[in-house]
Design a protein around this nucleic acid. Sequence first.
DNA 1: TTTCGTGCAAACCATTTGCAGCAGC
DNA 2: GCTGCTGCAAATGGTTTGCACGAAA
Lengths: 148, 148
Amino acid sequence: MTHEAKEKFNKLREEGYRITSQREQLLEFFYNLPDGEHLSAEEMHKKLTEKGIKISLATLYRSLKFLVINGFIRELDFGEDHKHYELKGPDNKQHQHLICNSCGLTVEFEDKNLYDYAIKIAKRNNSFEIRDYQFKIFGLCEKCRGLT
Amino acid sequence: MTHEAKEKFNKLREEGYRITSQREQLLEFFYNLPDGEHLSAEEMHKKLTEKGIKISLATLYRSLKFLVINGFIRELDFGEDHKHYELKGPDNKQHQHLICNSCGLTVEFEDKNLYDYAIKIAKRNNSFEIRDYQFKIFGLCEKCRGLT
DNA sequence: TTTCGTGCAAACCATTTGCAGCAGC
DNA sequence: GCTGCTGCAAATGGTTTGCACGAAA
């Protein structure tokens, strides 16, 4: 967990939220995840349990929502029946995804111009306040292209 | 329904798919929708029924999938508990969305450079074959910004 | 006539919720 | 001690599926 994240937690505590061990350990878990790994809630629950971290599925869902709303992580939808979650990077170097509709493969890419672009669009629309921006390219990966 | 869409249907028929009245009427329904309207399956089912178009919810879901896979419409996820569907525009003038996390308001925007950008990214990644690209900006709209 | 698609109702399954007990602060 | 958070189990609700019948081709 970064210094910045700790400060954010303190601020939330002052606002009346409680920093429980579940919330702390969950965020810590995200920081220890390999870069670009985006798990579903169920997968996460399994890994957390394996690590000895005790948290119920219900609390996990509630904590994920808590972390999303407060800008620690982001929620991704790849067109599957479940959501994925990953640590949120700095706004201007947030990575994005290519998603294969056939095998589900996801590949990350990063582009620093995308954030400036998002800001421009947001300004044009009554100064919309950006919380996250997602660019997704759906299609067929190299492997699946040959099969269809 | 456009000429192009009809040709696409004929091609599918030759491939062994059946062009049922449900599939035809559903696509026609999309063409008659106001520009930028993206309904959920349930909303759509209600509207179709009101129009006197008989289609069960199950078939609607199956037909939507059929139309998505074959590139007639696109499936959108705004972080709610259901998907939205809308007619797919030409690749290079596909509109994108700003989504308010608080009230659910969505605003469309269009940018012709975005497609070129998607192509560039796709080329860099083993010539990934693009089926759809979605740029979404999540955040707070003008109205909700004041409330939080 | 041969499949493929549809309608119905039941099943699925990720996510949410009510409630009683527990833990931050 | 007060109040928000957690765990459990049950509920929810959008979406999917099995099966028998109906309709494209």
